[in-house]
Amino acid sequence: MTTTTTTTHAPKSAVSRIVAAGTHQRVLAFTSLIILLIGFSLASPNFMQTSNMIAILQATSVNGVLAVAVTLVIITGGIDLSIGTMMTFCAVITGVVLTYAGLPLLLGVIAAIATGAGCGLASGTFVAKMKIPPFIATLGMMLILKGLSLVISGTRPIYFNDTPGFSEISRGSLIGKVLPLLPIPNGVLILFIVAGLAAYILGRTVLGRYCYALGSNEEAVRLSGVNTDRWKIAIYAMSGSIVGVAGLLIASRLNSAQPALGLGYELEAIAAVVIGGTSLSGGRGTILGSLIGALIMAVLTNGLRVLSVAQEWQTVVTGAIIILAVYADMMRRKRSS
């Protein structure tokens, strides 16, 4: 009985499967990334240097981790505007644990991730239980966390000078110890580990499945007897814990928790997600896409700087890229429907 059905659906080739899965935007983003890399290499011999490539990756790490975090929420059809200030809040809490309380490094790491998860839990509860639209709930959260960071730190940076290992989290290089020619910083390694984990969660776990299901048709999921509120909260919490990792990365890179920092990071991350082909209306999106999106933004910034283009213009170009990327995606969808 089973054989009849399986033979009628011969497994598709890997290529056609990728195309069929609607990954066009990701392919487009990836191609753009390659073209940018080639273009900048031709324009300046300084661009394609190992040290510059590593600088680009290092610059991607924080925005990349944030983009991964917010991808989960955006796939559910939500949005999280608080991730920038949440990242800072996590860094400040880590400062409290390590510098104020003088506790061991590991506890600081746990504190950052737990703080992020707690913030996500709160946002998720506002959205799922109190039915506040995600945009508003997380806008409120963004201000609350910004304020709390300033209050707790007394508006002054918290330095990690007493915890010598802390800056190694981002700036050390485990890979470089093994392969001296490839001194990839730990921050980049962490980005790829986090991205890999998130991609696994999205593709292979129940939590991931409900991300797509909620974004696709929340009412249908609810009518199927799924406790949609609980899952939504879990997704925001998962996203928050990834933001906690971003908090560790930025604090480690600056060797300090800067309480005034954070605002604006959320928009950069959302931009990366959008460039990577994730639909803001939910139901569709990939971690790989967001990663490529974050890389495109970092390559642009770096490349334009290498070409000595003023920073003001870099911002303009990034904005134009976002509009182009989404327009290309809209055109494709219009054609396919």
């Binding site: 292979r204 776990t205 939590l207 499945r209 797509y212 048709n217 249908a220 799924v226 139901g283």
Partner: peptide
């Protein structure tokens, strides 16, 4: 139905066969 999901994912929504740690 959830249009972005596959047929199987739709049919068994809420009752996905799981491995350990919430894996599908």
């Amino acid at each position: 139905l959830m249009n972005d999901l596959t047929a199987a994912q739709n049919v068994l929504i809420g009752r996905e066969p799981r491995l350990r740690f919430g894996r599908l």
